[in-house]
């Protein structure tokens, strides 16, 4: 594939828009996390929970728009090895989002910092990728959005028992079991997406 073809493909997937949105989310996450953590009336780094929950969600919502072309059936009758393309797409996007967001929480990575941002990025991108297969890329943002907003609204205990599993987006990264559902969502979503692609 030449540079020209790659550029056309990235534009066909809306990657420039995704990139611009991701930069905004990253800057917002960095500024907001710093501001929250340094307010005297909050409890230090623990105040970054909203950023840890919402920044990966916003990035994943932006990613949803890139998971399909304008006409999936038209593209799929071409001889391209689409599974490889999809694997590269979802893999590269997840790594990029995780690295950028992790950079915003590096000064205190363990307490609602980089580690939790990486975990939530994995979970949210997995949810979005899986949803794209089941309901199409256009609405793929909806299940992840509904889930994270519902969990956030429920205000579960932090570092608790079952809450580690179902409220993983709000748990500190030290809550070991909170990684399990995020990693499972990431693996399942990626496998589904690579195997079948977004629903046309």
């Amino acid at each position: 594939m030449t540079a020209r073809a790659l550029r056309l493909h990235l534009r066909a997937r809306g990657v420039p828009r995704f990139g611009a949105g991701l930069i905004l989310v990253t800057v917002f996450a960095g500024v907001a996390a710093q501001w929250l953590a340094t307010r005297p009336f909050f409890d230090g780094p623990g105040a970054r929970v909203p950023v840890v929950a919402l920044a990966p969600l916003l990035a994943a919502l932006l990613l949803a728009g890139t998971l399909a072309g304008a006409d999936e059936s038209l593209e799929r009758v071409t001889p391209v090895r689409w599974r490889l393309v999809r694997a590269a797409h979802v893999g590269a996007a997840t790594v990029l989002v995780a690295l950028l967001l992790a950079a915003t929480g590096l000064h205190d990575p363990a307490v609602y910092g980089s580690y939790a941002l990486v975990r939530n990025t994995l979970g949210c991108t997995g949810l979005v990728a899986g949803a794209a297969v089941l309901i199409g890329a256009r609405l793929a943002w909806l299940p992840a959005f509904a889930y994270v907003v519902t969990v956030y609204g429920a205000s579960p205990a932090r570092d608790g028992g079952w809450e580690n599993l179902w409220a993983w987006p709000l748990q500190p990264s030290t809550a070991g079991w909170s990684w399990a559902p995020a990693l499972a969502a990431c693996a399942a979503g990626a496998v589904l997406y690579v195997r079948w692609g977004a629903r046309g």
Binding site: L8, H9, R11, A12, G69, A70, L74, T78, V80
Partner: peptide, 25 residues
């Protein structure tokens, strides 16, 4: 050519056809 097809609104006509030429290797 399907009965209805989606296209990339920001592509020019030439880019649209060129993109499919690439996809068709």
């Amino acid at each position: 050519l399907p009965q209805t097809f989606g296209f990339y609104p920001r592509f020019t006509v030439r880019e649209f056809v060129e993109y499919f030429a690439w996809l068709k290797e």
